[in-house]
Design a protein around this nucleic acid. Structure first.
Length: 414
DNA sequence: AAAGGACTCAACCGCTTTTAG
DNA sequence: CCTAAAAGCGGTTGAGTCCTT
């Protein structure tokens, strides 16, 4: 491991973090937020570069991190998301609350790749190894090793939407050749979102379904960051054009029992990534300080129309009397929205909102589900099940509670 | 018990993208 | 619009641990 150039200049520490350093960083960020990372080490009294501090915070100190081994459920999700997104670790991590991109990347490289290979699946293309080997032979003769999945998907998306171009899939030339499933979520979103409106094939799915379903999913999604930016559209087998079924059926059959339900095999997924769901207002911070949770309407785009969806818990600082404090850390600095916004992702803050609306939504969900043509068998966990159950949320809450305890032990009560 | 290979995970590097001035 | 700084990301590495022989 080398040293950052800035570390050379300033003779900064590198390598593993000591508990003292952790405490300094944690204390500093909990008090002031990180603000500009490059100034954090100086302000916190650390002999580290800002980049190192940021990484330490993101990968280790963040209180909303889930620790411990990945569940089978999480592993399946990672595989599914990897099939759709490729090595977009941060994007995959965004859908696994409490997990970091680094953690997921390590798991993939050390474990999941191997598991897939053992099951005869190529971890790069998510196709049967025999098929990949054959295609490699053919490609070798033509001097090309282009990924069939992404190519096929891109072609299909191009058919559906003339605006869709494979050139949009590669974030950088460096990655484009290395990362086989180059179908980025953005491209998928582009293709699906516009097609939802433009393509008559897509219109075969009832507008009622789209409106109701998306609304329900989005309401759920706000409580589960994995789905916070997903919209679902129903294309799939009814049209014989399931974007992901080609490779995911292989993956899922290998990883999960035959009855397993995947999001992909029957329903294509339109990603709709709206960067930030909500930025807390100064007002919201003050209202949260009374110990209540405010809910602000935010919105998510479905197609080109803004779909209003509520349930964004707006949680700020704990109250000064310490009565109903649910926020482990205080937002001291007005305008440090970034800091506060990060904490809005914390499942803990979503819990109250979720509980309030869970019953209502599950009723609505039950009304909608039969129309969706999703497999009726939910005996095995899948992404779909996450929309119904909140086990992972509960886990996150447990983890969160432990983190709070940890922080409380560190700093005592305010 | 010791050696060494395999594995895991935290952290760094270098690059791209985003943001601010 | 341009540029520099900051942030973010994916790939890689090295140290520690575990497992096998």
């Amino acid at each position: 491991m080398g040293r950052h150039s800035c570390c050379y200049k300033q003779k900064l520490r590198k390598g593993l973090w000591s508990p003292e350093e952790d405490e300094k960083l944690l204390r500093h960020i909990s008090q002031y937020g990180h603000g500009c990372w490059s100034s954090v080490p100086k302000q916190a009294g650390l002999q580290r570069c800002g980049k190192s501090c940021r990484l330490r915070w993101i990968n280790y100190l963040r209180p909303d991190l889930k620790r411990g081994a990945f569940s089978q459920d999480e592993e399946d999700l990672i595989i599914e998301f990897h099939a759709a997104l490729g090595n977009k670790w941060s994007q995959i991590a965004a859908h696994l609350p409490g997990r970091t991109d680094n953690e997921i990347k390590n798991l993939w490289n050390s474990c999941l790749k191997k598991k897939l290979r053992q099951r005869g699946i190529d971890p790069v293309s998510h196709r049967p190894l025999s098929e990949v080997e054959n295609s490699d032979d053919k490609d070798a003769t033509s001097g090309q090793t282009q990924d069939k999945v992404s190519r096929g998907s891109v072609e299909l998306l191009s058919q559906l939407n003339p605006h869709f171009s494979s050139s949009k899939t590669a974030r950088s030339s460096k990655n484009s050749n290395l990362m086989a499933p180059t179908l980025s979520k953005d491209t998928v979103a582009d293709g699906f979102v516009s097609n939802h409106q433009e393509n008559s094939m897509m219109n075969s799915c009832s507008s009622d379904f789209v409106d109701n379903f998306s609304l329900q999913q989005l309401n759920y999604s706000s409580s589960d960051s994995r789905f916070s930016d997903l919209c679902f559209t129903q294309t799939g087998r009814a049209h014989g054009n399931t974007i992901f079924s080609d490779f995911n059926s292989n993956v899922i059959s290998a990883i999960s029992p035959p009855s397993s339900n995947s999001l992909f095999p029957t329903a294509s997924m339109g990603f709709n990534f709206k960067p930030s769901n909500a930025v807390p207002s100064a007002n919201s911070t003050s209202s949260a300080s009374t110990g209540t949770a405010d809910f602000h309407n935010s919105g998510s785009y479905f197609g080109n129309s803004l779909v209003s969806w509520g349930l964004l818990a707006d949680c700020g600082s704990p109250d000064k009397e310490g009565s109903t404090s649910i926020h482990p850390l205080e937002v001291h600095q007005p305008g440090d929205f970034k800091w506060a916004a990060e904490y809005l992702q914390n499942p803990l803050f979503m819990a109250a909102a979720l509980q309030n609306q869970a019953q209502e939504q599950s009723n609505l969900y039950n009304q909608i589900k039969p129309e969706t043509q999703f497999p009726p068998d939910h005996s095995t966990p899948s992404m779909w099940d996450h929309l119904q159950g909140h086990e992972s949320l509960d886990n996150s809450l447990n983890t969160c509670g432990k983190d709070i305890q940890r922080l409380t032990a560190l700093f005592g009560h305010n």
